Amino acid sequence: MHAGRSYTFTEFLLWTRRPLYLLILLDVALVALYQLGGLHWLAVPWNVILMLGTSVALIAGFKNTQTYNRLWEAQQVWASITAASRLWGTMTRDYVNRPEHNRRLVYRHLAWLTALRYQMRESKPWETQKLMPNVEYRKHYDVPEKVRTLDAELIKYVSPEERSRILGATSKATEVLSLQGAALRQLLDDGVIVQATFAELQRVLRELHEQQARSERIKDYPYPRQYAVINAIFVRILCLLLPLGMIDLLAPMNDTVGGAMGGQMVWLAIPLSVLVSWIYSALDQVGESSANPFEGGANDIPISQLCNTVERNLRELLDERDVPLQHAPASPIVL
């Protein structure tokens, strides 16, 4: 996510500039055909464009609302994961009286957080990070899960045997929770914890399972493709017809305006239609980039930072005071 004041206009313009090139060429060509080529039949009544623009605005607004809701739900899910993680650390410290068992339970939980965030960063066919505007913008930040492998991270938290089981599982995060549940059962059988403690810790594990499922649902089920493609098609139709409607609006002024612009007012359709078309296309691009809050984009939920914060909190509960300080990000983009 962007943790600074805001994106600058220059950043936003550079990010959305590619549609501008095509829009300028298209509008220049259509106006030239009307004004220089004499193809006056190209003009489209402005009322038609007005109705189309209103419909596209409603559809674009619907898409952006829904994609923002996905982003907001992802933030809520990971806020719940953070709260449940701190609860897990506190309960294991207070209920499990043996430090070595307490430490294993906490570190295995850190392994679950690690496996889950790596799972959330896996690429999906519908995600937008392979698009050139997003590829270019990634020069401003790094995605931690693309820099280090999951294997290298798990070494810090679990034994080689458990790491091998986790890496060999289809759902690595689920495998960690399974190992955690088996460890709790073993502690109960060995008399380290009582039945009531076992039940309370299992309740927290169930909460973690539920939050993982919610996070997976957002990751694995995209914004419905039928709505995404309708919005993209309608925006392109509007961008194609908008300069023709502008011509219809400006052409009557050719005979009423004197001076240098006398008879040339339709050329104003180029900058005006480019501006309005850019607004619609940029709105569509923003909505599409917000639909997948875990893909490694600049507007993602900062799950890597959240996991780092939780790790510091839990290790401090274990009285580990040598936890490395979290370095300030080199850019406002925090992942």
Rank of each mutant, 00 (worst) to 15 (best):
D255G: 14
Q226N: 12
I247P: 00
D189V: 13
G262K: 06
V143M: 06
R236Y: 15
S273N: 06
L275G: 15
A213S: 12
D248P: 05
A183L: 14
L244G: 07
R217Q: 13
V147W: 00
L188C: 03
E162P: 04
A182P: 00
Q195R: 11
K146F: 02
E145D: 09
T197R: 10
G262P: 04
R165Q: 15
R225N: 10
L244A: 12
M265R: 03
I247Q: 11
A269Y: 07
A169I: 06
L238C: 04
I247W: 09
C239H: 07
T170G: 06
D151H: 13
G263P: 02
P252D: 10
Q195T: 13
L150H: 05
A213R: 14
T197L: 02
T149G: 05
D190W: 01
A182N: 12
P144A: 06
T149N: 02
P160S: 04
K146G: 02
A228Y: 08
R148T: 08
P222C: 12
M261F: 15
V266C: 10
D151Y: 06
A183G: 08
E161G: 01
V192Y: 05
D220M: 13
A260W: 14
Q264L: 12
D142Y: 11
V143R: 11
A169L: 04
Y221N: 14
V204A: 02
D220T: 10
V147M: 11
Q212V: 07
P271W: 05
